[in-house]
């Protein structure tokens, strides 16, 4: 646990930019956890008299076309951002790790599974997600599954590569020839050594899940319109951009800064990683 904490905090200390990123992410977490106390208005409080107000004293970041307070919606939007990010990461890890590890341990199964991953990867990622949305229908949970499916493939690939290398390590081979069981090898040798590549992958997946979710929202195929997500806010503000350009600014900035911060953290983690695995984590 201490080790884990150090892997996350040490890079932040040595790079000021990353430290700022981590602070921003903490802000998001606080926004999400304490939205009712931070937001001055309920996120869906309609106030037709004060519609499309520019930023000012009454409404810190202005109001939208229903007169809803932009700042309050930004604060509540953090909840969905975290939900999507955590959901996608969990889904991608919960599916990608077993697929990758099993494929590495059992080559015959690996050929089939990795081939299937290849097939999924031949679909451009957003189209894959859209296809799943068509089948499952629209909704937050389905958006998580749809975006998670994209990162299932990349996670499985990376885990497969790392597990193959670990399997070839002398101490793992020694354990195998000494009669250690598969479960023992996986829990004792493979998974513990995979923590740092997985942390890196998790940061990147979290970052790109934000962009994917925003795209789905923007196309009207993500979170239902009544939910205050940053992507929905952008989609709704689209037709008012010339009249109320600030509506475009804040939710967009939140998406960008969240993804940027996570990318910074992921980069910092990767640079401290075992060089053998770093190569695989490019892009």
């Amino acid at each position: 646990m201490r080790q884990l904490l150090l892997t996350w905090t040490r890079p932040a200390v040595s790079r000021p930019m990353t430290a700022v990123g981590v602070l921003f992410l903490l802000t998001i977490v606080i926004f999400a956890a304490a939205s009712p106390w931070i937001a001055p208005y309920p996120p869906d409080l309609i106030d037709p008299v004060n519609r499309l107000q520019p930023p000012g004293p009454g409404h810190l970041l202005g109001t939208d076309h229903f007169g809803r307070d932009t700042f309050s919606r930004i604060v509540y939007g953090a909840r969905l951002a975290l939900l999507i990010g955590v959901g996608v990461v969990l889904f991608a890890l919960a599916t990608g790790v077993p697929i990758g590890v099993l494929s590495a341990l059992f080559p015959a199964l690996g050929v089939v599974l990795m081939r299937m991953v290849d097939v999924l990867m031949s679909f451009p990622s957003l189209l894959l997600a859209l296809g799943l949305i068509v089948i499952l229908g629209q909704g937050v949970f389905n958006a998580i599954l749809a975006i998670g499916l994209i990162y299932l493939t990349t996670t499985a690939r990376i885990v497969y590569g790392v597990a193959l290398r670990l399997k070839a390590e002398p101490y793992v081979e020694a354990a195998r020839s000494a009669g250690a069981g598969t479960w023992w090898i996986v829990t004792r040798h493979i998974l513990p050594n995979m923590i740092s590549p997985l942390l890196v992958q998790a940061s990147f997946v979290f970052a790109f899940a934000q962009l994917g979710a925003a795209s789905l929202d923007f196309l009207g195929l993500g979170a239902p319109p009544e939910i205050p997500s940053w992507g929905n806010m952008l989609a709704e503000s689209r037709i008012y951009i010339t009249r109320a350009s600030w509506l475009l600014l804040w939710p967009g900035l939140m998406i960008v800064l969240t993804a940027f911060s996570l990318n910074l953290v992921g980069d910092a983690l990767r640079d401290r990683m075992d060089p053998r695995f770093r190569e695989m984590m490019r892009r």
Binding site: A207, A214, S215, F218, R238, T242, L248, V256, F260, L264
Partner: peptide
């Protein structure tokens, strides 16, 4: 490198809307 990472974190449609706002509108 910082700029590149920032650009990689930006949704294309948001860039698109700003380009419209500035260079078209």
């Amino acid at each position: 490198s910082g700029l590149a990472m920032l650009l990689a974190s930006v949704p294309t449609f948001w860039v698109g809307l700003y380009l419209i706002l500035i260079f078209a509108a």
